[in-house]
Design a protein around this nucleic acid. Structure first.
Lengths: 235, 235
DNA sequence: GGATGTGAAGTCGTTCACAGCT
DNA sequence: AGCTGTGAACGACTTCACATCC
């Protein structure tokens, strides 16, 4: 299958090209990527506090993980520290951002302008994270025409979903946020696939099927709530 | 620690009392709980389609997991199938709901009435999931007084956060949804802890500390987006 | 016959412990 | 002396394979 191809490719060519983010080992656990995200948030805070150097123990303590875990996570991608010293906060922060693919601005579209979609449109946190919503779609734009995102006073007009393909090309959209009712999720996904929008963040509690090369991540509140309910019931 | 006590209790008394959710083995992986949630969603759909019996292979196929995984997941909690036949859809659905602690209605409060908080207040999906938002709080309620949830026409008045403790007791709130800016997350959590609200679903990208016995689950959009960005950059 | 339930095997991720730098 | 980087040990979760039961 396709995965194997990628795995071997990475293994073989790893560390050949310097200065480009490459894998030192073949497969990176998803948990590692999640933790990198966490490290980067901590490092950003430390940088703002004026801290210069941090040890794996300090960072681990800050992020509630094992110090060896921090070092292992980073080891997937190269060597970033100085033995006997630690890591330079600023450098490590930027290295992790680069590893995560955040050394660019990701252009996103929201599809579905219900309460959730509207909330996403003006979600402040995207601003500093190098994500930007550059388009909004709904099946019934008239009812919401005039609704704008509040960020930076720059309005985002709501367009009809049949314009996804055209607009995605035009605005170089790479990620679609599906905030429709579950019944519409797959057909919206199909439109995104057709428009070659490779990344999908799916808020609709429905399983979405995509071809090889496309990526879906689900954000299901109720699944997480179920988890919480289980823990509360059994502890 | 507290966990061990519970673990041994469950092990010892498992399957003694029929009809009550008990653990057959001591520790259940979190991944199992997440999958149970998924199974339950699939089973609900199957039930609505009039399907009577389902095999682990069918359910696994539907949920994109391994058939043995389905059986193992269920095995943590008892025996639910009939050899040579499969599982009764309706029974299994209800058994899983019971395992997850969803055989009751969980009363929730939203704290923080920005865009996200407002969206949560009218998030339709909670309705059929036995979760109910029964209160909404903000640090500045006047600005939003009159805003109501749209569900069932039943308005939810927005109250000042200093009333959390009082209202939580009164309305038997067990879960708090933190939808404030990250800087306020911990202090809001402290109020919830004081009010003995044991479950927290945290949408603010900040680490929240709680004492033993309290549960926090994070919903960080940007972490999941970071994950997506990484995948898109490396595949 | 056929699907469950489950010990055993396998795989994957985490933690340990220490060699190797600075 | 101190902290990183990493092979090896460990532990946890997943998958296999088959005995068990309807």
């Amino acid at each position: 299958m396709g995965l194997t191809k990628t795995k071997e490719f990475n293994k073989f060519f790893s560390n050949l090209v310097k200065g480009v983010t490459t894998l030192k080992y073949s497969k990176v656990p998803e948990a590692t990527i999640r933790r990198l995200s966490r490290y980067s948030r901590c490092l950003e805070e430390m940088e703002q506090l004026g801290e210069n150097v941090v040890s794996s123990a300090q960072l681990a303590n800050r992020c509630k993980v094992n110090p060896a875990q921090v070092r292992k996570d980073l080891a997937y991608f190269g060597e970033f520290g100085i033995r006997g010293v630690g890591y330079y906060v600023k450098d490590l922060f930027h290295d992790i951002r680069r590893i995560l693919g955040l050394n660019k601005e990701w252009k996103m579209a929201v599809i579905g302008m219900g309460n959730l979609g509207s909330a996403l449109l003006s979600y402040k946190d995207f601003l500093k994270q190098h994500y930007k919503i550059v388009a909004a779609f709904d099946i019934n734009p008239p009812k919401v025409i005039g609704r704008v995102s509040e960020k930076l006073g720059k309005p985002v007009e709501v367009l009809h979903i049949n314009r996804i393909k055209e607009v995605a090309k035009e605005r170089k959209i790479e990620i679609g946020l599906i905030a429709t009712p579950p019944s519409e999720a797959q057909s919206v996904a199909n439109l995104l696939i057709e428009a070659e929008v490779r990344g999908i963040l799916n808020f609709a509690p429905a399983q979405i099927m995509v071809p090889e090369g496309f990526m879906v991540k689900d954000v299901f509140f109720t699944t997480i709530l179920d988890n919480l309910a289980y823990l509360l019931s059994n502890n």
